[in-house]
Simulated scan of single mutants.
Amino acid sequence: MKKLFPLVTADIALFTIQEGSLRVLLGKRANTPELGRWALPGGVLDPMSDSDLNDTARRVLSSKTGVDVPFLDQVATFSGAARDPRGWSLSVLYYALLPRDLVPAVAGSKTEAIEWRDAFAPGSGLAFDHAKLIAAALATLRDKVDRAALPLHLLPERFTLTELQQTCELILGRSLDKSVFRRRLKDEPRIVQLDGEFLYGPQRPAQLFRAAVDFRF
Protein backbone atom coordinates (compact mmCIF):
# COMPACT_ATOMS: atom_id res chain seq x y z
CA MET A 1 0.00 0.00 0.00
CA LYS A 2 1.40 3.38 -1.00
CA LYS A 3 2.15 5.66 1.93
CA LEU A 4 1.06 9.29 1.92
CA PHE A 5 3.49 11.89 3.14
CA PRO A 6 1.52 15.11 3.78
CA LEU A 7 2.91 18.50 2.89
CA VAL A 8 3.32 20.29 6.23
CA THR A 9 3.19 24.08 6.15
CA ALA A 10 2.79 27.09 8.41
CA ASP A 11 0.58 29.96 7.19
CA ILE A 12 0.42 33.29 8.97
CA ALA A 13 -2.32 35.91 9.12
CA LEU A 14 -0.35 39.04 9.98
CA PHE A 15 -2.62 41.84 11.20
CA THR A 16 -1.92 45.53 11.65
CA ILE A 17 -3.77 48.85 11.78
CA GLN A 18 -3.40 51.01 8.68
CA GLU A 19 -5.40 53.95 7.37
CA GLY A 20 -7.99 53.54 10.09
CA SER A 21 -8.80 49.88 9.47
CA LEU A 22 -7.66 46.41 10.46
CA ARG A 23 -5.46 44.97 7.70
CA VAL A 24 -4.04 41.56 6.86
CA LEU A 25 -0.90 40.98 4.82
CA LEU A 26 -1.12 39.09 1.51
CA GLY A 27 1.63 38.24 -0.95
CA LYS A 28 1.35 37.65 -4.69
CA ARG A 29 2.70 34.17 -5.33
CA ALA A 30 5.77 34.03 -7.58
CA ASN A 31 5.86 30.22 -7.84
CA THR A 32 3.50 27.42 -8.80
CA PRO A 33 1.06 26.27 -7.68
CA GLU A 34 -1.35 29.22 -7.66
CA LEU A 35 1.16 31.39 -9.53
CA GLY A 36 0.11 35.04 -9.49
CA ARG A 37 -2.65 34.63 -6.92
CA TRP A 38 -2.74 36.33 -3.54
CA ALA A 39 -2.07 34.29 -0.41
CA LEU A 40 -1.07 34.51 3.22
CA PRO A 41 2.65 34.30 3.91
CA GLY A 42 3.42 30.60 4.29
CA GLY A 43 6.09 28.00 3.88
CA VAL A 44 6.92 24.33 4.15
CA LEU A 45 8.36 22.84 7.33
CA ASP A 46 12.13 22.34 7.05
CA PRO A 47 12.95 19.49 9.46
CA MET A 48 16.68 20.19 9.10
CA SER A 49 16.47 23.73 10.45
CA ASP A 50 13.09 24.18 12.17
CA SER A 51 12.86 22.80 15.69
CA ASP A 52 9.07 23.15 15.54
CA LEU A 53 6.36 24.83 13.47
CA ASN A 54 6.76 28.03 15.49
CA ASP A 55 10.24 28.24 14.00
CA THR A 56 8.77 27.63 10.56
CA ALA A 57 6.27 30.46 11.01
CA ARG A 58 8.89 32.95 12.19
CA ARG A 59 11.28 31.95 9.40
CA VAL A 60 8.53 32.40 6.83
CA LEU A 61 7.65 35.88 8.07
CA SER A 62 11.28 36.93 8.16
CA SER A 63 12.08 35.67 4.66
CA LYS A 64 8.89 36.85 2.96
CA THR A 65 8.24 40.16 4.71
CA GLY A 66 11.45 41.14 6.49
CA VAL A 67 9.63 41.86 9.77
CA ASP A 68 10.00 40.49 13.29
CA VAL A 69 6.65 40.40 15.06
CA PRO A 70 6.12 40.88 18.81
CA PHE A 71 3.23 38.39 18.92
CA LEU A 72 2.65 35.08 17.12
CA ASP A 73 0.32 32.27 18.14
CA GLN A 74 -1.43 29.25 16.67
CA VAL A 75 -5.06 29.42 15.57
CA ALA A 76 -5.97 26.00 14.16
CA THR A 77 -4.86 23.15 11.92
CA PHE A 78 -6.31 22.68 8.43
CA SER A 79 -5.80 19.48 6.46
CA GLY A 80 -7.08 17.49 3.50
CA ALA A 81 -6.38 16.03 0.10
CA ALA A 82 -7.94 18.87 -1.90
CA ARG A 83 -6.37 21.93 -0.25
CA ASP A 84 -3.21 21.94 -2.36
CA PRO A 85 -2.71 20.59 -5.91
CA ARG A 86 0.64 19.16 -4.83
CA GLY A 87 -1.14 16.54 -2.71
CA TRP A 88 -2.42 15.83 0.78
CA SER A 89 -1.49 18.78 2.98
CA LEU A 90 -1.56 19.90 6.58
CA SER A 91 -1.28 23.57 7.49
CA VAL A 92 -0.96 25.07 10.95
CA LEU A 93 -2.45 28.55 10.87
CA TYR A 94 -0.92 31.30 12.99
CA TYR A 95 -1.95 34.85 13.60
CA ALA A 96 0.50 37.62 14.35
CA LEU A 97 0.23 41.28 15.33
CA LEU A 98 2.44 44.07 13.98
CA PRO A 99 2.54 47.58 15.50
CA ARG A 100 1.18 50.13 13.06
CA ASP A 101 4.41 52.12 13.11
CA LEU A 102 6.26 49.07 11.76
CA VAL A 103 3.93 48.53 8.81
CA PRO A 104 6.52 49.10 6.07
CA ALA A 105 7.45 45.57 4.97
CA VAL A 106 9.63 44.32 2.14
CA ALA A 107 8.63 41.38 -0.04
CA GLY A 108 11.06 38.46 0.11
CA SER A 109 12.50 36.36 -2.67
CA LYS A 110 9.42 34.18 -3.22
CA THR A 111 6.75 36.86 -3.53
CA GLU A 112 6.30 39.31 -6.39
CA ALA A 113 4.42 41.88 -4.33
CA ILE A 114 2.68 42.40 -1.01
CA GLU A 115 -0.49 44.22 -0.07
CA TRP A 116 -2.21 45.11 3.19
CA ARG A 117 -5.84 44.13 2.56
CA ASP A 118 -8.95 44.92 4.60
CA ALA A 119 -9.10 42.00 7.04
CA PHE A 120 -12.90 41.85 6.79
CA ALA A 121 -12.89 41.92 2.96
CA PRO A 122 -9.51 40.63 1.70
CA GLY A 123 -10.81 40.01 -1.82
CA SER A 124 -12.04 37.06 -3.85
CA GLY A 125 -10.02 34.42 -5.66
CA LEU A 126 -7.33 33.98 -3.01
CA ALA A 127 -4.95 31.04 -3.36
CA PHE A 128 -5.69 27.65 -1.80
CA ASP A 129 -8.21 27.93 1.07
CA HIS A 130 -6.71 31.15 2.43
CA ALA A 131 -10.01 33.05 2.54
CA LYS A 132 -11.15 30.44 5.07
CA LEU A 133 -7.88 30.77 6.99
CA ILE A 134 -8.17 34.56 7.21
CA ALA A 135 -11.73 34.26 8.51
CA ALA A 136 -10.59 31.78 11.19
CA ALA A 137 -7.69 33.99 12.32
CA LEU A 138 -9.92 37.07 12.41
CA ALA A 139 -12.53 35.25 14.48
CA THR A 140 -9.84 34.22 16.99
CA LEU A 141 -8.53 37.79 17.25
CA ARG A 142 -12.00 39.27 17.69
CA ASP A 143 -13.00 36.68 20.29
CA LYS A 144 -9.90 37.38 22.34
CA VAL A 145 -10.46 41.16 22.31
CA ASP A 146 -14.16 40.62 23.06
CA ARG A 147 -13.06 38.76 26.20
CA ALA A 148 -11.06 41.81 27.39
CA ALA A 149 -7.62 41.00 25.95
CA LEU A 150 -5.74 44.19 25.09
CA PRO A 151 -4.27 44.27 21.54
CA LEU A 152 -1.26 46.33 22.62
CA HIS A 153 0.99 44.65 20.05
CA LEU A 154 -0.86 46.59 17.35
CA LEU A 155 -0.01 49.93 18.96
CA PRO A 156 3.23 51.93 18.91
CA GLU A 157 5.48 51.76 21.96
CA ARG A 158 3.72 54.78 23.51
CA PHE A 159 -0.02 55.18 23.09
CA THR A 160 -3.08 56.91 24.49
CA LEU A 161 -6.19 55.24 25.90
CA THR A 162 -8.15 56.69 23.00
CA GLU A 163 -5.83 54.93 20.55
CA LEU A 164 -6.26 51.69 22.48
CA GLN A 165 -10.05 52.00 22.44
CA GLN A 166 -10.08 52.80 18.71
CA THR A 167 -7.94 49.72 18.03
CA CYS A 168 -10.35 47.50 19.96
CA GLU A 169 -13.27 49.02 18.06
CA LEU A 170 -11.62 48.37 14.69
CA ILE A 171 -11.13 44.71 15.60
CA LEU A 172 -14.61 44.22 17.02
CA GLY A 173 -16.37 46.20 14.30
CA ARG A 174 -18.43 48.19 16.78
CA SER A 175 -18.21 51.24 19.03
CA LEU A 176 -17.41 50.93 22.72
CA ASP A 177 -18.71 53.17 25.47
CA LYS A 178 -15.83 55.43 26.49
CA SER A 179 -16.68 55.63 30.19
CA VAL A 180 -17.15 51.85 30.48
CA PHE A 181 -13.89 51.24 28.62
CA ARG A 182 -11.96 53.65 30.86
CA ARG A 183 -13.39 52.10 34.05
CA ARG A 184 -12.30 48.70 32.82
CA LEU A 185 -8.75 50.00 32.44
CA LYS A 186 -8.57 51.55 35.90
CA ASP A 187 -5.67 49.92 37.77
CA GLU A 188 -5.06 47.67 34.75
CA PRO A 189 -1.65 45.98 35.36
CA ARG A 190 -1.01 45.31 31.67
CA ILE A 191 -0.52 49.00 30.87
CA VAL A 192 1.81 51.47 32.55
CA GLN A 193 1.17 55.20 32.78
CA LEU A 194 4.12 57.32 31.65
CA ASP A 195 4.09 60.08 34.23
CA GLY A 196 4.69 63.51 32.72
CA GLU A 197 4.42 62.26 29.13
CA PHE A 198 1.54 63.47 26.99
CA LEU A 199 0.42 63.53 23.37
CA TYR A 200 -0.22 67.13 22.35
CA GLY A 201 -2.71 68.10 19.66
CA PRO A 202 -5.71 70.35 19.00
CA GLN A 203 -7.51 68.86 22.01
CA ARG A 204 -6.35 68.74 25.62
CA PRO A 205 -3.08 66.81 26.15
CA ALA A 206 -3.61 63.04 26.34
CA GLN A 207 -1.76 60.90 28.87
CA LEU A 208 0.63 58.37 27.31
CA PHE A 209 0.97 54.74 28.34
CA ARG A 210 3.10 51.73 27.45
CA ALA A 211 2.65 47.97 27.73
CA ALA A 212 3.94 46.28 30.89
CA VAL A 213 7.35 44.68 30.46
CA ASP A 214 5.98 41.12 30.68
CA PHE A 215 2.85 41.82 28.60
CA ARG A 216 1.63 39.12 26.24
CA PHE A 217 -1.59 39.38 24.26
Rank of each mutant, 00 (worst) to 15 (best):
S49F: 11
A137G: 02
T140F: 01
R117I: 09
N54E: 10
D129V: 13
W116I: 12
F78W: 14
L40C: 12
V67M: 02
G125A: 08
M48I: 07
L53Q: 08
T77G: 10
K28T: 02
L35N: 01
D118T: 10
P41Y: 06
N31G: 15
K64H: 05
A127T: 07
A57V: 08
R100S: 12
G36D: 04
L72D: 02
D52I: 01
G36P: 04
I114R: 12
L61P: 04
L133Y: 00
P104L: 13
L98H: 10
G123R: 12
D55R: 07
A137D: 08
T56P: 07
P85K: 14
L72I: 05
L25M: 13
A127G: 11
Y94D: 03
T32N: 14
V92C: 05
V69C: 04
L26M: 04
A139V: 04
G87I: 14
S49L: 14
A137V: 02
F71Y: 14
K132S: 13
T56Q: 03
L90K: 15
H130Y: 10
D101K: 01
A113M: 13
P33S: 11
D68I: 06
L45M: 15
A113F: 01
P122E: 00
H130Q: 14
L141A: 05
D46S: 09
K132R: 05
K132H: 12
V106S: 11
A119G: 03
P122L: 06
K28N: 13
F78T: 10
G125Y: 06
I134A: 01
L141R: 02
V92A: 03
L93P: 05
L26T: 12
A105E: 08
L53H: 06
Y95H: 10
P47L: 11
L35Q: 08
L40I: 06
A76L: 14
N54G: 08
A30K: 03
D84Y: 01
D50M: 10
L102P: 14
D84I: 10
D55M: 04
S124Q: 09
E115A: 03
L98Y: 13
Y95G: 03
G80F: 07
L35K: 15
K28R: 13
A131T: 07
S79I: 08
V69R: 00
T77I: 15
A137N: 03
S79Y: 15
Y94I: 04
T32P: 06
L98D: 02
R59A: 01
G125I: 06
A137H: 01
S63A: 08
L35C: 12
D68M: 12
V75N: 00
L138C: 02
P99N: 07
V106H: 06
E115M: 09
A82I: 05
T56V: 01
V103F: 11
T77N: 13
A39Y: 00
V60W: 00
A76F: 09
S51K: 12
A81C: 04
L35I: 13
T56I: 07
P33A: 12
